[in-house]
Write a protein that binds this DNA or RNA. Sequence first.
DNA 1: CCGCATATGTAGCCATGGCTACAATTCGGT
DNA 2: ACCGAATTGTAGCCATGGCTACATATGCGG
Lengths: 153, 153
Amino acid sequence: MTAARRPTPTVPDTVTQAAHLGRARTAQTRVLLEDYVELIADLAGDAADAPPIGPSTLARHLGVSHATVIKCIGRLSREGLATTLPYRGVTLTQAGLALADRVRRRHRIVVALLRAVGVPEAEAAADAEGIEHHVSDKTLAAFERFLRHTPVG
Amino acid sequence: MTAARRPTPTVPDTVTQAAHLGRARTAQTRVLLEDYVELIADLAGDAADAPPIGPSTLARHLGVSHATVIKCIGRLSREGLATTLPYRGVTLTQAGLALADRVRRRHRIVVALLRAVGVPEAEAAADAEGIEHHVSDKTLAAFERFLRHTPVG
DNA sequence: CCGCATATGTAGCCATGGCTACAATTCGGT
DNA sequence: ACCGAATTGTAGCCATGGCTACATATGCGG
Ligand SMILES: [Mn+2]
Ligand SMILES: [Mn+2]
Ligand SMILES: [Mn+2]
Ligand SMILES: [Mn+2]
């Protein structure tokens, strides 16, 4: 039972595989933060006077309870991505805005790539919401290159 | 604070967005199961007499502790994907094998698509480990179509 | 200016998936 | 046969992110 008798060729070297899976696990811890800052930025609009967004609004868009949102806003704030005052909603910090920009850009590119390889609109929109969080910078760069060098969609 | 003054066009309709994010959240609950059955199938090889795999082997490949693996094997077994006997390792059920087949195929196709749009080998291998779990059947079908109609890489 | 609908916050529950520390079993080598 | 190393299992901790139920604050319409 120490190992498979034949180290099947489909199995990559052990430490590499562990690293890949670990990386995916780590990415998971960022998913919630990324979705929140992306949504907050989208809702607040691009004006300089971005208005604070309330928990119930976020809850509606996220499809979770407002209690859950309030807890997660605590984490956002602990991580320095947003500021919040009781009964006064949440506003992104500079760091939060910077992250939101990166996340929104990546989201757009992922959707565009999916569309470009023939994924239907609705599926692209839905799947991108999960895929985006696992697209590294290098992969994103490759996506952009592909989109530039590909005629239409 | 009830909503953004301008319902910025980047924000999709509320219930659609909630559905998309909810779908990504739901997918998350399958990630662990998928990675486990995929790994177990890979390690056991394709022989009919697939040998049971021990927790420590899985732990090494997954990059987590053996205690964590043992707990997760419990879930695998509760969900009918594997059987296990004390000190005798874990074996996939028919359902587990079927899931593993789907997951491994999807994994291959995702890696191939990433390579086809120009993602470097190492990045493709790493990112695929996270992306794969968020690729729906329709999106997978689109990937296959694209790969068929695209000359080389 | 006041009451009430709505939004916000708190408390406490649960499942998951990490971990370490320790206990028990197995099994190969002598 | 049996000893000891390696594997396996158990116990108990923690953080996360869901939820419901209840409590409190806000602010608008009348
Ligand atoms: Mn997302
Ligand atoms: Mn997104
Ligand atoms: Mn994976
Ligand atoms: Mn995989």
